[in-house]
């Protein structure tokens, strides 16, 4: 039982670290602000959840587990609110998103022009 818990927690921690690193690479690699928000979303949701669940499995103390769950819930409630506020501020200040850079332009062109002029 104990080894199973240790194995599970190690897996969760390693997977969370991998997700974190991927998000960090994504925030450097993606071309514009709006796409970078998706990379940050990865590190805020599943990576944080995986690392915190891995920590929960390490500790038998009930109060510590409840505190970790509270941190997890707070992260899950706060991160969409913060990223929504950030995205809306960027839209209101007319930061143009890159749109459809890799799609063949035949049927996409009109709608893309429409959207970018509107936003």
């Amino acid at each position: 039982m104990d080894t199973v818990l240790t194995l599970l927690s190690s897996f969760c921690l390693l997977f969370g670290s991998f997700l974190c690193l991927s998000g960090g690479v994504g925030i450097l690699r993606f071309p514009d602000f709006y796409t970078r928000m998706h990379a940050v979303g990865v590190t805020d949701t599943l990576a944080a959840a995986m690392i915190l669940i891995g920590l929960m499995l390490q500790n038998p103390d009930l109060l510590v587990i409840i505190k970790l769950m509270m941190i997890l819930l707070m992260t899950l409630f706060i991160s969409p609110a913060a990223s929504h506020a950030l995205g809306q501020a960027a839209v209101l200040n007319k930061l143009q998103p890159l749109i459809n850079m890799n799609i063949n332009p035949l049927e996409e062109d009109t709608s893309a022009g429409d959207k970018s002029s509107k936003s």
Binding site: F33, D44, S79, L86
Partner: peptide
């Protein structure tokens, strides 16, 4: 842009 910096600082905080 300014928003890239705020985004990065937010990620740093989490």
């Amino acid at each position: 842009s300014l928003y890239d910096r705020i985004l990065a600082v937010n990620m740093f905080g989490t």
